[in-house]
């Protein structure tokens, strides 16, 4: 049985719809990331589950039980807040012990569990420090220890890495993953960072305008985006407009070319996605489908590769990846021939 089931959640703030008939299941021990832009409803979703917001309709089922009427303090789950929300007047140990005190855990056991939780986040020796004397990374760990010390089966994390600088973010991400495995709790983590979402999760759920657009393992969502939004949001795929040609191909006027996927393109296809790194530069023009040509408008060096902006013959602007090992990228203004495999073409349904 799912640990958490959301059924048809609707939440509006004035005229804006934050959650639009959203259904989602979370399995026990699963690491799920909720990925979406600002205003996609991902934070609202977390706040509805925690009980800080009430959905207008729909159900929140925790282990099969509807918890809509349960106030936040009585919900057997914990949340790590984006701002960490550490109590400024309590020491590190006081912050971590706060939830145990509310449950009247006896002193000796409380001390032991606080020590355990602080060891888990490698903050031994900081017990008596006040939050204002901690670095951002240390605050983040205290918040994590405080949320984990009650051993919740479900932990909600609102942009837990958002306030950290880039190198710390990657390391802390791995630590989060390890902690999640160690504790066996299900994590629902909200993020707007696609790399974070893909790197950490067992499953990624992409939200757009309060709707769940696609959910699945990171690789599957990345390689087979379902809609224009997912394709553009994850990895910045080229979204190519056009229509099915009725013979299994997809006519793309912007490229002045026909696209062919591995399977025939069906009639409901609205557009096709093509990732920049799957497009290769060819020395000479190639006849047939899945090939085009254009003029290089911009070249951006990105370290392990370069990103080219190519104006295709039909007027579309294509993002094309150029790996370093393939030598120097073509200069701005040069004409290039492009080709890609059928496996790289992903038909989108919306």
């Amino acid at each position: 049985m799912a640990l958490l089931s959301l059924r048809g959640l609707v939440k509006r703030f004035g005229d804006t719809v934050a959650l639009d008939h959203l259904d989602l299941d979370v399995a026990p021990g699963e690491f799920l990331t909720l990925l979406g832009g600002s205003g996609s409803g991902k934070s609202t979703l977390l706040r509805v589950v925690a009980g800080f917001e009430t959905a207008e309709s729909g159900a929140v089922l925790l282990e099969g039980r509807d918890i809509a009427a349960v106030p936040p303090h009585a919900r057997p789950l914990n949340m790590m807040f984006q701002s960490y929300a550490l109590f400024p007047h309590l020491s590190v140990a006081g912050n971590v012990a706060y939830g145990l005190k509310r449950d009247d855990v006896p002193r000796a056991e409380r001390d032991r569990r606080v020590a355990e939780a602080l060891a888990l986040v490698r903050l031994q020796g900081f017990e008596r420090r006040l939050p204002y004397r901690l670095s951002g990374g240390q605050k983040q760990r205290v918040a994590l220890a405080r949320a984990l010390v009650k051993r919740p089966r479900l932990l909600l994390l609102d942009e837990p890495l958002g306030a950290l600088d880039a190198n710390l973010r990657e390391r802390t991400g791995f630590e989060l993953r390890a902690l999640q495995r160690e504790t066996g709790a299900a994590f629902i983590m909200v993020t707007h960072d696609q790399n974070e979402a893909l790197a950490l999760a067992d499953r990624v759920a992409v939200l757009e305008a309060g709707r769940l657009v696609q959910a699945g393992p990171p690789r599957a969502v990345y390689e087979r985006p379902a809609t224009r939004f997912v394709a553009g949001f994850l990895g910045g795929a080229n979204v190519l407009e056009g229509q099915p040609d009725g013979a299994g191909g997809f006519d793309c006027p912007g490229l002045a070319a026909t696209l062919r996927a591995e399977a025939p393109v069906d009639r409901g296809t609205a557009a096709c996605a093509l990732r920049p790194e799957r497009i290769t530069l060819r020395p000479s023009p190639l006849a047939g489908a899945n090939a085009s040509q254009g003029v290089v408008e911009e070249v951006a060096f990105r370290g392990d590769d370069s990103l080219l902006l190519v104006r295709a013959a039909g007027g579309a602007l294509l993002r094309v990846g150029h790996a370093e090992e393939d030598g120097a990228p073509p200069p701005r203004g040069s004409t290039v021939h492009l080709a890609w495999e059928a496996a790289a073409v992903v038909p989108l349904r919306g």
């Binding site: 929300a85 109590f87 009650k150």
Partner: peptide, 14 residues
């Protein structure tokens, strides 16, 4: 920060 009271509630405080 009003979020402090939410954090307290989340940790079990009425």
């Amino acid at each position: 920060d009003p979020v402090l009271e939410e954090a307290a509630a989340d940790l079990g405080a009425t």
